[in-house]
């Protein structure tokens, strides 16, 4: 089976400091993979590098997304190709209305696909329907992007953006951290709603509990810039029970 996303020998550094030291990872179409691992292992860096953040220098390896050389693409071109990164710490945009932000983003992607842009009325209709499905308060559209949002609201806003932009590949960077159980369910539902043969996701998490709602096909353990172990959903349960030390010792 051809992979939707294929990462091979990927190395990246920030300044002189190597963070990713050779990642090999293949995510087939339709699969959800989880990335777990201790703090500082390079999980967030992997998400940023995939999305094209310029602070990280890719020093080697390849990333192929549906046959395209993704490392050669600008961040917005990657987004247009269907990549979505749910940020661990979503950025605040003072003065920028959430509805306007979402419509600008959606229309940029629609334009890239040669589709007609949505006007404000069409967009609001679409957004309200999605929000209802995700049990979100419509007020969120009127507020400025992430400004004054609680931690949970910010994460839910990321899920809303994902629902509206309908990516083919989503990277969720600890979207579950700091969420209560209801919010966790919204995140999981947001991802589950997109599930299908043409949607894949990489879910970065510390906890088993998100994976209870969002059963992954594969679980990978990232430590010190490398994937040191991969397995089925039971690996997450094992990590939850025994911690990372056993796996780390094994790999050493």
């Amino acid at each position: 089976m051809t992979a939707m996303l294929d990462i091979s020998g990927l190395t990246a550094s920030i300044g002189d400091k190597p963070i990713l030291k050779g990642i090999d990872l293949s995510v087939p179409a339709g699969e959800i993979h989880a990335i777990m691992g201790p703090n500082g292992s390079g999980k967030s860096t992997l998400g940023y590098v995939l999305a094209g953040r310029e602070d990280y220098e890719v020093t080697g390896g390849t990333v192929t997304f549906e046959g395209q050389d993704m490392l050669a693409m600008a961040p917005e071109a990657r987004a247009a190709a269907g990549l979505f990164l749910a940020f661990q710490a979503p950025i605040e945009l003072p003065g920028v209305n959430n509805a306007n932000f979402l419509r600008t983003a959606l229309n940029a992607i629609r334009r890239a696909h040669g589709e007609d842009e949505l006007d404000a009325v069409q967009f609001l209709k679409f957004a309200r329907a999605e929000m209802k499905r995700l049990s979100m308060d419509g007020e969120m559209l009127k507020r400025n992007v992430n400004v004054g949002f609680s931690g949970g609201e910010k994460k839910r806003n990321e899920v809303l953006q994902m629902a509206l932009l309908r990516p083919r590949f989503a990277v969720l960077d600890e979207t579950d951290s700091g969420l209560d159980i209801d919010a966790l369910r919204i995140v999981a539902e947001g991802v589950n709603a997109l599930r299908g043969p043409n949607f894949s996701a990489l879910v970065v998490t510390h906890h088993q509990r998100l994976l209870d709602h969002l059963v992954p096909h594969r679980v990978h353990v990232l430590a010190q810039g490398r994937i040191i172990r991969s397995g089925g959903p039971e690996l997450a349960k094992e990590l939850e029970k025994n911690g990372y030390s056993a796996v780390l010792a094994e790999a050493a």
Binding site: G52, E54, R78, A79, L85, A105, A108
Partner: peptide
Amino acid sequence: FYCRQRGMSE
């Protein structure tokens, strides 16, 4: 970067 990740040009 946040905006560009959502598909917008700079």
